[in-house]
Design a protein around this nucleic acid. Structure first.
Length: 588
DNA sequence: GCCGTTTTCGGCCCGACTGTTTTCAGTCG
C-alpha cells in the first residue's frame, strides 16, 4: 500500500462525509491529511507507525489510527461502512462541473440518481428542472457537461497548451491598456499537468481587456462573464480564466492565483500571525479584536510579489517551488537555492535523427542546436532491439559515427557527440556488447520493452545497466506517458542510490508527454549527489525547444546550475562524460 | 478532525459568479 492509495482513500472519505452533510471542518481535515500525505517525503514503512504518522502536519490521532489500520490490514472498517451507505458509483457525479455535494445529495435523495447515466435520463425526462434549487438552466448545463465529458477529459500536458497560452498572453500584452499580464496558476508553477489557465491582467480599462479576452480567435465558447472575472474554453478544450485588477492589486492577485492552494494557506497564515489579513487584492490590518493585546506591525508597501514575501520575512520564492514542500523554511532562513535558468544550458544529449525514428538529418539537427545557442549536441539514436523505431545495428551505428566525426571537422565552437540510446534488455544486459559501446562518446540507457516486470525485477534490471561503465546516463527512468500510460513498477530510491554509487547521470526527459524523472524525486537525487542531465529526446528540430519544459521540471526539483551537467561548457563536458569510464579503468 | 509564541476550546481562507430567488445557497478556485 503506497501513499497515493492512502491519500485517495482519505479524499474519498471526505467526499462521502460531504454527501452525508457532516461538519465541513471535519471534511477539510481529511482533505488536508490527504494533501499532506501526498507531499510527505518519509519512508513508506513508517506509515504503520502511529507516532511517526502524527508528526505529519494535518494528521492527528484519529486519522493516524485509520492509516495504520489501512496499512496493516489492507482495508478500513470506517471507510467500508461509509461506502455502504451510498451507491457504488455515486462519486463519478463529482466529476461534472457545477455539481457539488449538496446538489448530488438532492439528486440522490429526491430522484434516486446514483450515476451519470441515470442523471442523464432524469435530465432528458425533465425531472431535474422540477427539483427545488434546480431549474431549466441547471438541467441544460448538466446535460451539456455530460456530453462534453468525453471530449474534454479535463486535463492537459503542459506542452499541449503552452502554444495557446503564450499566444493569448502575447496578445493581451500588446493591448495598450494592459499594464501587467501574467499566466498564473499551475502553468506558472510549471506543473506537468494543468487543468486550466489563469490570466491576471492589471489595467485601468477592465471592460476593454475582458472584451479582447472573450472575443479572442482562440476562444471556442464563453463559460462566464463578469466585470472582474471571465471564463472561456479555448479550442484545445482547456478552460481559461481571466481576472482583471488594478495595478495596486496586481501583486496580490498574481500571488494568490499562482498558488498552490497549500502554499497560499501558509502565506495567509504568516500574514495572520503578524496581525494582517491577506486576500487576492490587498494586505490589510485585521479588524481590531478586543482580545488583541499587541498592536499589529505596520504594513509595508507592496508593489511587486517580492515585496509581499519580504513583508512576511521571507526571501522571494520562485513560482515553481510554491508547493509547500519546504520552501517556507528555506525562504525564512536564506536557504533557497538559486534555481537553474534556461540560459544556463550549453548543450544536450538525447536526440534522434532519420537514422532511426527522427525526422531530421544529422546536419539539420546540428544547425538547429547552433541556432538555439547550444555549444554541443549529443546524438543518441535507438539500438537494434527497438525494431519499431528502426533501431541501428552495429554496422549502421558505425556509419553514423564516421559521419559525426567528419561533420565535426566542419564546425567551429560546436561539436556533435556520438552516442546511442541503448535498450536495456529484459535481464538488464545492454543491446550492444561493451566493445561497441566503447567506440562511442557516450551511452544513454533506457527501457523500451517488457514494461510489466515486477518492481523487484525491473529495479534489478535497471541497476544492472547502471553498473556498466559505458552507460553515462539513464533516460526516462519510469517510462510514463502522461495522461496515457502509467509508469512501470520500479523502486526509484534504489535506482537513485545506484546512480549515485556508479556515477551515472539521470535524465529529465523534457518531452512534455514524459517529464521523467518527475520533479518530486529530484530533492532526494540531489541529496544523494546524483547529477541531472536535461534532454529533449527530440525526434525533430522543432522539438529541441522542449528543453524549456525540462528546465521547469529541474526548477521544481530545486536544482541549480551546478546540479545539471549540461550547463557545463564544451571545454568541460567531455571530461565529465569520460569520468565514469575513467573511474572504472576502461579508458586512460 | 486538527491545532496552539493568545488558546486544550473554539476556531478552521474567502471572494466571484451563477442560478434561483427576492436575499442567498451552491460551486469553484
Amino acid at each position: 500500500m503506497d501513499k497515493a492509495t492512502i491519500a485517495d482513500v482519505l479524499e474519498k472519505i471526505a467526499t462521502l462525509l460531504e454527501l452525508k452533510g457532516e461538519n465541513p471542518f471535519k471534511i477539510r481535515a481529511y482533505v488536508n491529511a490527504a494533501r499532506s500525505l501526498e507531499t510527505w517525503g518519509g519512508n513508506i514503512a513508517d506509515l504503520a507507525n502511529e507516532e511517526t504518522l502524527e508528526k505529519i502536519p494535518g494528521i492527528g490521532k484519529a486519522i493516524a489510527a485509520k492509516i495504520k489500520e489501512l496499512v496493516e490490514t489492507g482495508s478500513l472498517k470506517f471507510f467500508d461502512e461509509l461506502k455502504a451507505e451510498f451507491p457504488a458509483d455515486i462519486l463519478e457525479l463529482f466529476s461534472l462541473p457545477g455539481l457539488g455535494a449538496k446538489k448530488i445529495k438532492a439528486l440522490h435523495e429526491k430522484l434516486q440518481v446514483s450515476n451519470i447515466a441515470q442523471l442523464h435520463e432524469a435530465c432528458v425526462a425533465g425531472r431535474v428542472a422540477e427539483l427545488p434549487g434546480f431549474g431549466k438552466t441547471t438541467q441544460e448545463k448538466i446535460c451539456r457537461a455530460i456530453d462534453e465529458r468525453q471530449k474534454y477529459a479535463g486535463t492537459f500536458q503542459l506542452g499541449q497548451i503552452a502554444g495557446e497560452a503564450e499566444r493569448l498572453q502575447d496578445d493581451l500584452r500588446s493591448h495598450p491598456d494592459a499594464l501587467h499580464v501574467c499566466i498564473a496558476g499551475s502553468y506558472r508553477r510549471r506543473k506537468e499537468i494543468v487543468r486550466d489557465l489563469d490570466f491576471i491582467v492589471a489595467t485601468s480599462a477592465p471592460a476593454e481587456i475582458s472584451a479582447l479576452f472573450i472575443q479572442h480567435p482562440l476562444v471556442e465558447s464563453i463559460i462566464a462573464q463578469g466585470p472582474t472575472k471571465s471564463s472561456v474554453r479555448l479550442r484545445s478544450g482547456i478552460q481559461c480564466d481571466l481576472r482583471v485588477v488594478t495595478s495596486a492589486e496586481y501583486p496580490f492577485a498574481l500571488n494568490y492565483f499562482t498558488g498552490s492552494k497549500e502554499h497560499n494557506i501558509e502565506v495567509r497564515s504568516r500574514a495572520l500571525k503578524r496581525g494582517w489579513t491577506l486576500n487576492e487584492y490587498r494586505l490589510g490590518e485585521t479588524p481590531s479584536d478586543p482580545k488583541q493585546t499587541k498592536t499589529p506591525k505596520k504594513i509595508p508597501p507592496v508593489r511587486e510579489e517580492a515585496d509581499l514575501y519580504r513583508a512576511l520575512d521571507l526571501d522571494y520564492i520562485p513560482p515553481e517551488l510554491r508547493e509547500n514542500c519546504g520552501e517556507f523554511e528555506a525562504a525564512a532562513t536564506g536557504k533557497l537555492p538559486r534555481l537553474l535558468e534556461a540560459e544556463n544550458l550549453r548543450g544536450t544529449f538525447h536526440c534522434h535523427t532519420t537514422a532511426s525514428d527522427g525526422r531530421n538529418s544529422l546536419e539539420e539537427m546540428a544547425a538547429a542546436a547552433q541556432e538555439l545557442g547550444l555549444q554541443y549536441l549529443g546524438i543518441a539514436d535507438h539500438s537494434r532491439s527497438s525494431i519499431q523505431a528502426r533501431g541501428l545495428d552495429e554496422a549502421r551505428l558505425r556509419v553514423q559515427l564516421a559521419m559525426i566525426r567528419k561533420l565535426n571537422e566542419s564546425f567551429e565552437n560546436f561539436r556533435l557527440f556520438a552516442g546511442v540510446e541503448c535498450d536495456i534488455l529484459r535481464d538488464g544486459s545492454l543491446d550492444f556488447p561493451d566493445a561497441v559501446l566503447a567506440e562511442l562518446d557516450y551511452v544513454v540507457a533506457s527501457v523500451h520493452s517488457a514494461f510489466t516486470l515486477s518492481e523487484a525485477e525491473m529495479t534489478k534490471r535497471v541497476i544492472r545497466a547502471l553498473q556498466n561503465p559505458h552507460v553515462a546516463m539513464l533516460a526516462h527512468p519510469t517510462g510514463r506517458l502522461l495522461l496515457k500510460r502509467d509508469r512501470y513498477a520500479i523502486d526509484i530510491p534504489a535506482v537513485i542510490e545506484a546512480a549515485a554509487e556508479t556515477g551515472t547521470w539521470i535524465e529529465i526527459n523534457a518531452a512534455p508527454k514524459r517529464l521523467d524523472l518527475d520533479w518530486r524525486w529530484w530533492p532526494l537525487a540531489k541529496e544523494k549527489g546524483v547529477k541531472c542531465v536535461i534532454n529533449p529526446d527530440a525526434h525533430g528540430v522543432e522539438r529541441l525547444q522542449e528543453l524549456w519544459f525540462g528546465v521547469g521540471v529541474a526548477r521544481k526539483g530545486w536544482l541549480t546550475r551546478a546540479d545539471v551537467v549540461n550547463c557545463l561548457p564544451l571545454g568541460k563536458i567531455q571530461d565529465a562524460l569520460e569520468e565514469k569510464r575513467r573511474a572504472n579503468g576502461v579508458v586512460e
